[in-house]
């Protein structure tokens, strides 16, 4: 399995800043599937990322991940479209811990503020439910620039 050097501090800050987070998985027939995560946390070892998804989103994601651990996660800041893609291998899932709720809500609040700045009012995002959450931990194997335009798809160092 490919390994990736530890995630740098600036990138870690960006990944945890409150972003649009889309997860891609696949099944045995290479049929892709997708889901939404509300928050991301770079693990202390800087080699793993933990994604927080709503517990209702978790079953369909886990159905693929538990048999095919390949995972791709795209993280995008809507107002600038600064984005990156993290690829890796799923390792484990567990219920979100109560002490993690504040971290998730902080990232969702930052994300909704960013959306508000581009004209998506809070009235529209008010129905979002990010708790109870399930934490999905995966090991990072690849990191790519994904801001649209030339250079998208190049490895991030």
């Amino acid at each position: 399995m490919a390994t990736h050097p530890p995630i740098g501090a600036e990138l870690a800050d960006f990944l945890e800043s409150g972003l649009a987070i889309t997860i891609a998985t696949r099944d045995a027939d290479l049929e892709p599937d997708g889901g939404w995560a509300w928050a991301a946390r770079v693990d202390e070892d800087l080699l793993h990322i933990i994604l927080f998804v709503h517990e209702l989103s978790a079953p369909s994601l886990l159905r693929n991940l538990e048999s095919h651990p390949e995972i791709a996660v795209a993280l995008d800041l809507p107002s600038s479209h600064r984005a990156c893609q993290v690829k890796g291998r799923f390792e484990s899932a567990r219920p979100g811990r109560p002490e993690e709720r504040a971290l998730i809500e902080r990232q969702v609040a930052a994300f909704t503020s960013d959306l508000e700045a581009i004209g998506i009012p809070r009235a529209l995002t008010g129905g979002w439910r990010c708790w109870p959450a399930v934490a999905l931990r995966f090991r990072v194997t690849e990191l790519y620039e994904q801001t649209p335009g030339p250079g998208a798809g190049e490895p991030l160092r």
């Binding site: 997860i23 891609a24 998985t25 696949r26 390949e70 996660v73 795209a74 893609q85 994904q146």
Partner: peptide, 10 residues
């Protein structure tokens, strides 16, 4: 991809 790695893109 054909080798089984998913991808997500805007």
């Amino acid at each position: 991809s054909r080798d089984g790695m998913p991808n997500a893109a805007i």
